[in-house]
Nucleic acid binder design. Structure first.
Lengths: 137, 137
DNA sequence: TATTTTAACTTGCAAAACCGAAGCTAAAAT
DNA sequence: ATTTTAGCTTCGGTTTTGCAAGTTAAAATA
Protein backbone atom coordinates (compact mmCIF):
# COMPACT_ATOMS: atom_id res chain seq x y z
CA UNK A 1 0.00 0.00 0.00
CA UNK A 2 1.49 3.27 -1.12
CA UNK A 3 0.36 6.38 0.69
CA UNK A 4 -0.19 9.75 -0.88
CA UNK A 5 1.38 11.26 2.23
CA UNK A 6 2.15 10.55 5.86
CA UNK A 7 -0.25 13.15 7.14
CA UNK A 8 -2.15 11.26 9.86
CA UNK A 9 -5.51 12.33 8.46
CA UNK A 10 -4.56 11.14 5.02
CA UNK A 11 -3.29 7.89 6.51
CA UNK A 12 -6.65 7.35 8.16
CA UNK A 13 -8.51 8.23 4.98
CA UNK A 14 -6.50 5.81 2.92
CA UNK A 15 -7.53 3.09 5.36
CA UNK A 16 -11.24 3.73 5.60
CA UNK A 17 -11.97 6.86 3.61
CA UNK A 18 -14.86 5.44 1.66
CA UNK A 19 -18.48 5.12 2.56
CA UNK A 20 -18.82 1.37 2.78
CA UNK A 21 -15.87 0.50 4.99
CA UNK A 22 -17.08 2.70 7.80
CA UNK A 23 -20.61 1.32 7.55
CA UNK A 24 -19.22 -2.19 8.05
CA UNK A 25 -17.30 -0.96 11.07
CA UNK A 26 -20.47 0.63 12.39
CA UNK A 27 -22.32 -2.67 12.04
CA UNK A 28 -19.57 -4.46 13.93
CA UNK A 29 -19.40 -1.87 16.70
CA UNK A 30 -22.98 -0.83 17.24
CA UNK A 31 -25.27 -3.36 15.61
CA UNK A 32 -23.81 -6.65 16.81
CA UNK A 33 -23.39 -7.88 13.26
CA UNK A 34 -20.72 -10.51 12.73
CA UNK A 35 -21.61 -12.33 9.50
CA UNK A 36 -21.64 -11.65 5.79
CA UNK A 37 -25.40 -11.91 5.39
CA UNK A 38 -26.01 -9.56 8.27
CA UNK A 39 -23.85 -6.89 6.68
CA UNK A 40 -25.65 -7.48 3.41
CA UNK A 41 -29.05 -6.47 4.65
CA UNK A 42 -28.07 -3.12 6.08
CA UNK A 43 -30.42 -0.22 5.57
CA UNK A 44 -28.00 1.33 3.11
CA UNK A 45 -28.13 -1.69 0.77
CA UNK A 46 -24.55 -2.49 0.03
CA UNK A 47 -24.13 -4.74 -3.00
CA UNK A 48 -22.59 -8.14 -2.41
CA UNK A 49 -19.67 -7.46 -4.72
CA UNK A 50 -18.72 -4.28 -2.88
CA UNK A 51 -19.18 -5.98 0.48
CA UNK A 52 -16.88 -8.87 -0.44
CA UNK A 53 -14.31 -6.43 -1.68
CA UNK A 54 -14.36 -4.25 1.44
CA UNK A 55 -14.21 -7.18 3.85
CA UNK A 56 -11.12 -8.40 2.07
CA UNK A 57 -9.56 -4.94 2.16
CA UNK A 58 -10.27 -4.36 5.82
CA UNK A 59 -8.80 -7.75 6.60
CA UNK A 60 -5.64 -6.97 4.63
CA UNK A 61 -5.32 -3.69 6.53
CA UNK A 62 -5.60 -5.62 9.81
CA UNK A 63 -8.74 -3.79 10.89
CA UNK A 64 -10.88 -6.93 10.99
CA UNK A 65 -10.18 -10.69 11.08
CA UNK A 66 -12.03 -13.78 9.96
CA UNK A 67 -12.58 -16.91 12.03
CA UNK A 68 -15.00 -19.79 12.15
CA UNK A 69 -18.19 -19.25 14.07
CA UNK A 70 -18.36 -20.65 17.59
CA UNK A 71 -21.50 -22.68 17.05
CA UNK A 72 -21.58 -23.51 13.35
CA UNK A 73 -18.09 -24.27 12.17
CA UNK A 74 -18.97 -23.77 8.51
CA UNK A 75 -19.91 -20.20 9.25
CA UNK A 76 -17.44 -17.33 9.16
CA UNK A 77 -17.36 -14.79 11.95
CA UNK A 78 -15.84 -11.37 11.51
CA UNK A 79 -14.11 -9.64 14.42
CA UNK A 80 -12.51 -6.30 15.04
CA UNK A 81 -8.78 -6.26 15.69
CA UNK A 82 -7.35 -3.87 18.27
CA UNK A 83 -6.49 -1.55 15.39
CA UNK A 84 -10.12 -1.62 14.30
CA UNK A 85 -11.39 -1.21 17.83
CA UNK A 86 -9.23 1.86 18.25
CA UNK A 87 -11.36 3.55 15.64
CA UNK A 88 -14.25 3.73 18.09
CA UNK A 89 -13.63 7.38 19.07
CA UNK A 90 -13.78 8.40 15.41
CA UNK A 91 -17.12 6.68 14.97
CA UNK A 92 -18.43 8.23 18.18
CA UNK A 93 -17.55 11.71 16.98
CA UNK A 94 -19.24 11.02 13.68
CA UNK A 95 -22.37 9.95 15.53
CA UNK A 96 -22.30 13.13 17.58
CA UNK A 97 -21.86 15.35 14.53
CA UNK A 98 -24.40 13.50 12.41
CA UNK A 99 -26.85 13.39 15.27
CA UNK A 100 -26.45 17.11 15.80
CA UNK A 101 -27.06 18.18 12.20
CA UNK A 102 -29.64 15.69 10.96
CA UNK A 103 -33.04 16.74 12.22
CA UNK A 104 -34.36 13.30 11.37
CA UNK A 105 -31.49 11.40 12.94
CA UNK A 106 -32.02 7.86 14.07
CA UNK A 107 -29.70 8.40 17.04
CA UNK A 108 -31.48 8.68 20.38
CA UNK A 109 -31.16 11.98 22.16
CA UNK A 110 -30.27 10.03 25.29
CA UNK A 111 -27.24 8.52 23.61
CA UNK A 112 -26.24 11.78 21.99
CA UNK A 113 -26.28 13.79 25.19
CA UNK A 114 -24.48 11.09 27.14
CA UNK A 115 -21.83 10.89 24.42
CA UNK A 116 -21.36 14.64 24.64
CA UNK A 117 -21.45 15.06 28.39
CA UNK A 118 -19.67 11.91 29.44
CA UNK A 119 -17.70 10.95 26.41
CA UNK A 120 -14.86 9.10 28.12
CA UNK A 121 -17.26 6.93 30.06
CA UNK A 122 -19.42 6.09 27.05
CA UNK A 123 -16.38 5.14 25.02
CA UNK A 124 -14.83 3.02 27.75
CA UNK A 125 -18.07 1.14 28.35
CA UNK A 126 -18.59 0.34 24.69
CA UNK A 127 -14.95 -0.54 24.37
CA UNK A 128 -15.04 -2.92 27.30
CA UNK A 129 -17.94 -4.76 25.75
CA UNK A 130 -16.34 -4.89 22.30
CA UNK A 131 -13.04 -6.14 23.69
CA UNK A 132 -14.86 -8.99 25.35
CA UNK A 133 -16.72 -9.92 22.18
CA UNK A 134 -13.97 -9.34 19.62
CA UNK A 135 -10.56 -9.73 21.17
CA UNK A 136 -11.04 -12.54 23.71
CA UNK A 137 -10.14 -16.15 22.86
CA UNK B 1 -29.84 15.64 -1.14
CA UNK B 2 -31.40 12.25 -0.56
CA UNK B 3 -29.90 10.13 2.19
CA UNK B 4 -29.48 6.40 2.09
CA UNK B 5 -30.52 6.37 5.76
CA UNK B 6 -30.76 8.56 8.84
CA UNK B 7 -28.11 6.66 10.72
CA UNK B 8 -25.90 9.45 12.09
CA UNK B 9 -22.74 7.79 10.79
CA UNK B 10 -24.24 7.46 7.34
CA UNK B 11 -25.39 11.09 7.51
CA UNK B 12 -21.83 12.16 8.29
CA UNK B 13 -20.44 9.96 5.52
CA UNK B 14 -22.81 11.39 2.95
CA UNK B 15 -21.53 14.85 3.87
CA UNK B 16 -17.79 14.24 3.82
CA UNK B 17 -17.27 10.53 3.26
CA UNK B 18 -14.74 10.92 0.50
CA UNK B 19 -11.02 11.49 0.65
CA UNK B 20 -10.79 14.97 -0.78
CA UNK B 21 -13.42 16.77 1.27
CA UNK B 22 -11.72 15.89 4.52
CA UNK B 23 -8.32 16.94 3.19
CA UNK B 24 -9.75 20.36 2.37
CA UNK B 25 -11.16 20.58 5.87
CA UNK B 26 -7.77 19.58 7.25
CA UNK B 27 -6.10 22.37 5.28
CA UNK B 28 -8.61 24.88 6.64
CA UNK B 29 -8.29 23.69 10.22
CA UNK B 30 -4.62 22.85 10.61
CA UNK B 31 -2.70 24.41 7.74
CA UNK B 32 -4.07 27.93 7.66
CA UNK B 33 -5.05 27.59 4.02
CA UNK B 34 -7.87 29.83 2.85
CA UNK B 35 -7.55 30.09 -0.96
CA UNK B 36 -8.06 27.90 -3.99
CA UNK B 37 -4.42 27.83 -5.02
CA UNK B 38 -3.29 26.94 -1.54
CA UNK B 39 -5.54 23.89 -1.50
CA UNK B 40 -4.28 22.99 -4.95
CA UNK B 41 -0.70 22.51 -3.95
CA UNK B 42 -1.34 20.10 -1.11
CA UNK B 43 1.04 17.21 -0.70
CA UNK B 44 -1.67 14.84 -1.88
CA UNK B 45 -2.02 16.58 -5.25
CA UNK B 46 -5.71 17.12 -5.69
CA UNK B 47 -6.69 17.91 -9.27
CA UNK B 48 -8.26 21.25 -9.97
CA UNK B 49 -11.51 19.76 -11.26
CA UNK B 50 -11.98 17.68 -8.13
CA UNK B 51 -11.08 20.64 -5.94
CA UNK B 52 -13.59 22.93 -7.66
CA UNK B 53 -16.23 20.27 -7.35
CA UNK B 54 -15.62 19.59 -3.65
CA UNK B 55 -15.53 23.26 -2.70
CA UNK B 56 -18.89 23.73 -4.34
CA UNK B 57 -20.29 20.67 -2.58
CA UNK B 58 -19.00 21.67 0.83
CA UNK B 59 -20.48 25.11 0.30
CA UNK B 60 -23.86 23.66 -0.66
CA UNK B 61 -23.77 21.51 2.48
CA UNK B 62 -23.08 24.64 4.53
CA UNK B 63 -19.75 23.34 5.81
CA UNK B 64 -17.74 26.16 4.27
CA UNK B 65 -18.56 29.62 2.86
CA UNK B 66 -17.01 31.87 0.26
CA UNK B 67 -16.26 35.55 0.68
CA UNK B 68 -13.97 38.12 -0.84
CA UNK B 69 -10.51 38.36 0.61
CA UNK B 70 -9.83 41.15 3.11
CA UNK B 71 -6.90 42.66 1.23
CA UNK B 72 -7.45 41.78 -2.42
CA UNK B 73 -11.08 42.07 -3.27
CA UNK B 74 -10.77 40.01 -6.44
CA UNK B 75 -9.59 37.08 -4.38
CA UNK B 76 -11.91 34.54 -2.81
CA UNK B 77 -11.47 33.47 0.77
CA UNK B 78 -12.92 30.24 2.09
CA UNK B 79 -14.11 29.96 5.68
CA UNK B 80 -15.49 27.24 7.90
CA UNK B 81 -19.07 27.58 9.06
CA UNK B 82 -20.03 26.55 12.56
CA UNK B 83 -21.21 23.26 11.11
CA UNK B 84 -17.79 22.74 9.56
CA UNK B 85 -16.01 23.82 12.69
CA UNK B 86 -17.98 21.27 14.67
CA UNK B 87 -16.20 18.57 12.71
CA UNK B 88 -12.97 19.35 14.56
CA UNK B 89 -13.31 16.47 17.05
CA UNK B 90 -13.67 14.00 14.18
CA UNK B 91 -10.49 15.27 12.57
CA UNK B 92 -8.67 15.16 15.91
CA UNK B 93 -9.61 11.52 16.41
CA UNK B 94 -8.44 10.72 12.92
CA UNK B 95 -5.12 12.36 13.67
CA UNK B 96 -4.79 10.32 16.85
CA UNK B 97 -5.61 7.05 15.09
CA UNK B 98 -3.47 7.75 12.06
CA UNK B 99 -0.61 8.95 14.22
CA UNK B 100 -0.81 5.80 16.29
CA UNK B 101 -0.71 3.32 13.43
CA UNK B 102 1.56 4.97 10.90
CA UNK B 103 5.15 4.43 11.97
CA UNK B 104 6.23 7.16 9.59
CA UNK B 105 3.56 9.64 10.62
CA UNK B 106 4.16 13.32 10.08
CA UNK B 107 2.32 14.14 13.31
CA UNK B 108 4.56 15.22 16.16
CA UNK B 109 4.60 12.97 19.20
CA UNK B 110 4.12 16.07 21.30
CA UNK B 111 0.83 16.86 19.61
CA UNK B 112 -0.29 13.25 19.66
CA UNK B 113 0.29 12.78 23.36
CA UNK B 114 -1.29 16.10 24.24
CA UNK B 115 -4.31 15.24 22.12
CA UNK B 116 -4.63 11.94 23.94
CA UNK B 117 -3.96 13.13 27.47
CA UNK B 118 -5.68 16.49 27.35
CA UNK B 119 -8.09 16.14 24.51
CA UNK B 120 -10.72 18.63 25.69
CA UNK B 121 -8.12 21.35 26.18
CA UNK B 122 -6.46 20.79 22.82
CA UNK B 123 -9.80 20.89 21.05
CA UNK B 124 -11.00 24.01 22.83
CA UNK B 125 -7.77 25.87 22.10
CA UNK B 126 -7.83 25.05 18.40
CA UNK B 127 -11.49 25.82 18.30
CA UNK B 128 -11.07 29.20 19.92
CA UNK B 129 -8.47 30.14 17.32
CA UNK B 130 -10.57 28.88 14.41
CA UNK B 131 -13.67 30.70 15.63
CA UNK B 132 -11.72 33.92 15.66
CA UNK B 133 -10.40 33.39 12.14
CA UNK B 134 -13.46 31.88 10.48
CA UNK B 135 -16.62 33.00 12.23
CA UNK B 136 -15.86 36.59 13.27
CA UNK B 137 -16.93 39.59 11.21
C1' DT C 1 -0.17 50.23 -23.29
C1' DA C 2 0.68 45.57 -24.19
C1' DT C 3 1.85 41.24 -22.31
C1' DT C 4 2.26 38.04 -18.73
C1' DT C 5 0.90 36.12 -14.50
C1' DT C 6 -2.31 34.94 -10.90
C1' DA C 7 -6.61 33.14 -9.33
C1' DA C 8 -10.53 30.47 -9.70
C1' DC C 9 -12.66 27.82 -12.04
C1' DT C 10 -15.03 24.59 -16.34
C1' DT C 11 -14.95 21.08 -19.89
C1' DG C 12 -13.86 16.71 -22.04
C1' DC C 13 -12.65 12.24 -21.81
C1' DA C 14 -10.56 7.91 -20.00
C1' DA C 15 -10.27 5.06 -16.01
C1' DA C 16 -12.11 3.35 -11.91
C1' DA C 17 -15.88 2.29 -8.83
C1' DC C 18 -20.42 0.82 -8.21
C1' DC C 19 -24.45 -2.03 -8.58
C1' DG C 20 -27.72 -5.67 -9.61
C1' DA C 21 -28.15 -10.12 -11.29
C1' DA C 22 -26.42 -14.48 -11.89
C1' DG C 23 -23.30 -18.15 -10.81
C1' DC C 24 -20.48 -21.05 -7.74
C1' DT C 25 -19.02 -24.07 -3.78
C1' DA C 26 -19.46 -26.41 0.43
C1' DA C 27 -22.00 -27.46 4.46
C1' DA C 28 -26.50 -28.05 6.73
C1' DA C 29 -31.25 -28.80 6.88
C1' DT C 30 -35.33 -31.12 5.01
C1' DA D 1 -31.58 -37.02 -2.51
C1' DT D 2 -32.87 -32.30 -2.85
C1' DT D 3 -33.19 -27.75 -1.15
C1' DT D 4 -31.51 -24.08 1.55
C1' DT D 5 -28.01 -21.28 3.76
C1' DA D 6 -23.66 -18.90 3.82
C1' DG D 7 -20.07 -16.61 1.74
C1' DC D 8 -18.48 -15.31 -1.72
C1' DT D 9 -16.93 -14.26 -7.36
C1' DT D 10 -17.94 -12.85 -12.04
C1' DC D 11 -20.24 -10.23 -15.54
C1' DG D 12 -21.83 -6.21 -17.90
C1' DG D 13 -23.85 -1.81 -17.77
C1' DT D 14 -24.10 2.73 -15.47
C1' DT D 15 -22.26 6.26 -12.65
C1' DT D 16 -18.54 8.65 -10.51
C1' DT D 17 -13.88 10.11 -10.37
C1' DG D 18 -9.84 12.30 -11.68
C1' DC D 19 -6.14 14.10 -14.87
C1' DA D 20 -5.09 17.39 -18.57
C1' DA D 21 -6.22 21.16 -21.03
C1' DG D 22 -8.86 25.24 -21.72
C1' DT D 23 -11.35 29.62 -20.01
C1' DT D 24 -12.12 34.14 -17.92
C1' DA D 25 -11.21 38.13 -15.48
C1' DA D 26 -8.35 40.87 -12.63
C1' DA D 27 -3.65 42.31 -11.33
C1' DA D 28 1.10 42.74 -11.97
C1' DT D 29 4.95 43.59 -15.00
C1' DA D 30 7.46 45.37 -19.15
Amino acid sequence: MKLRSHCPINFSLEHFGDKWSLLILRDLMFKEKRHYNEFLDSEEKVSTSVLGNRLKLLEKLDIITKSTDDVKKSRIKYSLTRKGLDMLPILIEMIVWGGMYDSYTAASTAFLSEAKEDRAYVISEIRKKLEKEHLMK
